[in-house]
Design a protein around this nucleic acid. Structure first.
Lengths: 237, 237
DNA sequence: ACCTGAACACCGTTCAAGT
DNA sequence: ACCTGAACACCGTTCAAGT
């Protein structure tokens, strides 16, 4: 806490000059290690061995910095391979996106919430998705709608699956969720009670672990099935 | 800024005592009016005519307060009507959820990001959704997967559609997005270029207005179609 | 029980000054 | 051009004290 920049000279990093990329990368690293709530421009500065205000020479604001972090995560989405069916193409896109978010679960709340971040996504992504949907036989209004649906699905599942659990006293929070599930009244909530073992820690709202600890693999695969089958149904209609 | 609690005595609100509900409601009101970024426990306190620390007698932390705000929004999701097909049931759920988020776009980033908030959703919601999916003929693993898919879809579309645009200098940001769209290279991005008029301000990543100003009605309807058709395909498989 | 009031340890960001 | 250093106007939260 009392560590002033000067004391951090031992850091090898200080040898090279500050860059926007280095700042954004270090920000992501800090979020990965300490969580989004503990991230601050000031702690980032001490990690970089500079004064907080030095960062503002490269980045206009904290928000833009976080937008840079999101686009860094997005950039790690490897492009889908060519020469495959549009269904396979789409499946790979979903899996790649999920893997990218999974690699940085602490940043999950940033994904899809800020429109700025979206903008940084790049036309390559848009073009690739549009091509895939064109190959599926969609045009005009339905093309736009299917595009929006895929983006909503990508963001919706991944952001939810990897949403972090509360930082303050997580253990007692987890116990509270579990205890709450044990009190389910079978007369008031018959469907819930009957399927409780299968839903516990495996269904949104009824979980006490994040997807990074308890992944929802099969649900995700079925979700992709649903999206693909749903899009296919648009072409015959 | 210099306004001290005592000066706010004129407020009629001060007449009645402080309650958790009153605090949460006022918090939502503040977010609606001033945006999420300008929300603070301290400004909320002056709005309520009390010292900041008074709030902590009713709410353990800022995060729990925001969780309360989310559950307040969720509570406004009117339950679907009985005696309808499961498809119609599901459609109404989607539309109700969207309407609830739309009523409080500034709070959209809170929806679905924090797991705590999810927990506050209530078993009524869960039971109702499970019943609907059971009526669709889903059981066991596919029931869980379909449940997760619907929740992901609900949150994914609404949170994205109503995600606020950047607060700092929004006009120049909007112009930048529009200018960027005009520079699309038709040789590198043929599908994007060919559909640009239809995509502009109507597709995620390519928008400069939030859904509260430029709603994505038709895309949303198609999205619900996709989800329903996709779920239906699970039953025949 | 419910709120005031002071205090602590932080924030993001500005601006001038150094090199 | 790039960073230091001081300063401003805030934060969330604690703790003791009042009533």
């Amino acid at each position: 806490m009392a560590a002033r920049p000067k004391a951090k000279r031992r850091n090898v990093e200080r040898a090279s000059a500050l860059t926007r990329d280095r700042i954004v990368e270090e920000a992501l690293r800090q979020i990965d290690e300490a969580g989004l709530e503990d991230f601050s421009v000031r702690t980032l500065a001490t990690r970089l061995g500079v004064y907080p205000t030095a960062i503002y020479w490269y980045v206009p604001s904290r928000n833009e910095l976080l937008a840079g972090v999101v686009s860094l995560i997005h950039r790690k989405i490897v492009p889908e391979q060519r020469r495959k069916s549009w269904e396979q193409h789409l499946r790979e896109l979903f899996e790649n996106f999920r893997a990218a978010v999974r690699a940085h679960p602490n940043a999950a709340p940033l994904i899809g919430t800020q429109m700025v971040a979206n903008t940084s996504m790049g036309f390559e992504f848009v073009e690739s998705l549009l091509e895939t949907l064109l190959r599926a036989g969609l045009t005009e209004t339905r093309l736009v709608a299917a595009y929006n649906s895929v983006v909503a699905g990508l963001v919706g599942f991944a952001a939810q699956e990897f949403a972090p659990i509360p930082r303050e006293d997580p253990k007692s929070w987890q116990l509270a969720v579990q205890r709450r599930l044990l009190t389910v009244n079978p007369e008031r909530y018959p469907a819930l009670a009957a399927n409780l073992p299968r839903l516990s820690n495996q269904a949104f709202i009824l979980r006490w672990e994040s997807g990074s600890d308890a992944p929802l693999e099969t649900s995700f695969e079925v979700f992709v099935d649903i999206m693909i089958a749903g899009i296919k149904s648009l072409t015959v209609a």
